[in-house]
Design a protein around this nucleic acid. Sequence first.
RNA 1: GCUGACGUAGCUCAGUAGGCAGAGCACUUCAUUGGUAAUGAAGAGGUCGGCGGUUCGACUCCGCUCGUUAGCUCCA
Length: 582
Amino acid sequence: MEMNELQTLRHSASHVMAQAVKRLFPDVKLAIGPAIDNGFYYDFDTEHPFTREDLDAIEKEMKKIAKENLKIEHFELPRAEALELMKDEPYKTELINELPEGETISFYKQGEFVDLCAGPHVNYTGKIKAYKLLSATGAYWRGSEKNKMLQRIYGTAFPNKTELEEHLAALEEAKKRDHNKLGRELELFTTSELIGQGLPILLPKGARIIQTLQRFVEDEEQKRGWQLTKTPLMAKSDLYKLSGHWDHYKEGMFVLGDEEKDKEVFALRPMTCPFQYQAYLNRGRSYRDLPMRLNETSTLFRNEASGEMHGLIRVRQFTISEGHLMCTPEQLEDEFRGCLELAIYMLKTLGLYEDVSYRFSQWDPDDREKYIGTEEQWNEAQDTMKRILDHLNIPYVIGIGEAAFYGPKLDIQIKNVHGKEDTLITLQVDQMLAEKFGMEYVDKDGTKKNPYIIHRTSIGCYERTLALLIEKYAGAFPTWLAPVQVKLLPIADRHADYMAEIKRKLADKGILRTELDDRSEKIGYKIREAQLEKVPYMLIAGDKDIEAGVVSVRSRKDGDIGSMTIDEFIEKITEEIETKAR
RNA sequence: GCUGACGUAGCUCAGUAGGCAGAGCACUUCAUUGGUAAUGAAGAGGUCGGCGGUUCGACUCCGCUCGUUAGCUCCA
């Protein structure tokens, strides 16, 4: 089925649902009900929050409506008649009043149910056969928290039962890959009510993965001419007042102290930019110093609203591969390309490259308080960035209102296992903060100029990246990333010494992430546990192996792959680690 | 922050006309020394998220609070 046919089907399903809701709960007022990526929803204004039992009842009523096989008819009305028809529907009335003069006002009708709607729709309600109502949640009218919260019902629909079943099965399958579930099961992280919301505790295995990533990133950045800084995690409010954070980002910051009482108020840093600018400002700079590339493995603190936190994906404290690059206008495009190439190299190495999309995040000129700078500055910054992106042939979508308060961004977006999109990596061209901070360089002709600044991450924030990797690999990490790469399993107690020796040999060759399971358990039991822990390799040895001077190798992926000498195994796994094979 | 749902042993979950808290796995001990996904037995483990209220009596009902979660809003 064509995508737009499916959209039509789902849109009609949302009407059938609304009709069912109206039959069961005649007092509800209708808001809007579009088709979305994987289904549809409809927003209702009612004092009654829908329960799962309500959804089941609504599904049953939908079945009746489908059985009645009502004809779905289109008609149009002049404004006055349209308003009369919808006089009991305040949200529809609001929508009609906003349609431009002279616009035809379009309706769809099925049986007793009439809805203001541009369509299109399927021709009979009988076409709505395979559907499922998934959840009921709150949602603000027109997406603004200033407006009333409505009750939204999400559902999905397909042309036939088989496709619906497949989709529902895929949703179940996705739950198993959820990083929040797997990450806790595999003991990568945990949380504590005493520590607080959005403050995950990385356990040894999770910390090991992040350490591996961090070493990889810092080494690669060094190779590409980046210089490491280590700047403070907090600063006086003065710094943030100058940067604009105090006026535009204050509710996102943890402020230490009381402005009324204390002489000095500090805040934990939500971004590294103003700190690294102080490094630039250490002395006078010349064009000969540029480009200056400063990177930092940077722990940040953001006071996210309490409802926003989610596993490792949205947290209040996180560590990001952040960096700022100061350069001349002539260098800007090459340097931007360099930053992007680094990010892409990281994504490809991690195996996430196929899963990302690009968003050119621009300001919203109708929401001026959110941003620093003038309209001219914004237009110039966005034009510069657009020129670069177009020149590099980056296939982006535009996100209005998604810019940072100080400038436009190229966001590299990724969807988690539930289809929810987040920013993994961001690159920004900034023309405003250099001026604010008095950052200058002396050009060839002796005049002082503000550098361009590129803000960028190369792998994004480690916690979020780890979350996406857990979901990508369902916890079965490539060997180079695996927190435990080899598990050593002696068959009986008397084989443990031999295994301990093997462990030392591995360590001598730099294979340090190994574990010896010398419990007095049967081999099948140890294998089962190692397999459930998703360890890439198990080395097994008993009398036969010791006599032959070998180990039996079992791979997580292929099972028993026979025996080899330890040197042969070291060669095999070392190559796998060095090439970062997936 | 807003609207819902949820919170019982380390984990996954049972436990409603308010009346002494349960299972499996994990853990500890003992026996078993076993060759590619679970050896057997015994034991220990819980202020039923926290605080208040109603009640002779609260895991159970009510309020507040903390946390998790589906979304909205916000965002790396």
